[in-house]
Amino acid sequence: MKWMQFLTPAQSFDYKEAEAYMAEHASDTVTLLDVRQPSEYKESHIPGATLIPLPELTDRLAELDPEKPTLVY
């Protein structure tokens, strides 16, 4: 079992902090990850978000760059 995933807390940003963070960083240096369902994404999403629904995330991690800061919602 990989205990790291339970012991590593993810820092939280409120929307203002998240928006400022993305404004300060070039588009190709940050990942904004939307883990909701496609129907929710279609209705409304944060501009620039990459959609990978939570149930698919484990199988699709290779699509993301672990070196980049990743903002998740």
Partner: peptide, 15 residues
């Protein structure tokens, strides 16, 4: 989940 998979910096957008 991501932090345990080697992602260096993960931030949760609260709300």
């Amino acid at each position: 989940m991501l932090a345990g998979k080697g992602f260096k910096k993960v931030f949760n957008v609260s709300g």
